[in-house]
Amino acid sequence: MFWKTQIPVFIVFVVGMLTLLQWFIPHAPLNQIQVHMTQWFDIIAVFAIVLGGLNLLKLQFAKITSRQHDWQYALVTIVGFFVMLIFGFTKMGVEDEAVRLGSHLQREGSNFHWMFFNVFTPLSSTMFALLAFFVASASYRAFRIRNAEATLLLVAGIILMLGRVPIGHILTAWAPPYLQLPAIQEWIYSVPNLAGARAIMIGIGLGMVATSLRFILGIEKSFLGGDE
């Protein structure tokens, strides 16, 4: 109880208060607190990556040995893991001997660099590109007229889309300026939309303050793993 709850709660309190105080006290040494805390966090996270890597390998090996469904993908994962690990820790592909280990990662011609820009980046871009299709399918569902809210969304969406392209201007060029689609879309975007977004932001801000306060004061402890 003492080691698993009280000590972590104390650490959260001290670190939380110091971080809060440094916002209002710019004087040294408090002005350096955030920088040091961030560096400490990065150092701990770097060591923790070993745990993650080992866990990944363990599960992928288990999939292969027990011939689970689609185990071939696990093989690809393991091969990819070790290939990038070897290319990352050796200077393979770098002809200039003077290049230091570490800086070779960004050196054009190194195997790691080649793999990163010719395999990893296109794969990431492919996943990102899927978003375009998902946006289309999600918009289709959202714009289906099911109730008053969906109808409102549909109408606002159409005005916004039309108002931002030349055809929107052409369609309503005959109307007074304040009734033209570009003007209406601008109003929707910068008045009701902005008001709603700001209301959400205020709620989020207050939620963060309240949640942080619960952590700092030890009111919320369930994230430590103990039963609150």
Partner: peptide
């Protein structure tokens, strides 16, 4: 949405301390 997400633990646990903090948050709002 936003604050509802942060309020989830209080809602789900119904712990008076957490529920009280939500009320305080509302007064802030």
């Amino acid at each position: 949405i936003g604050e509802e997400f942060f309020a989830a633990s209080a809602y789900l646990s119904q712990d008076p301390k957490l529920v009280g903090s939500l009320k305080g948050q509302d007064w802030g709002k």
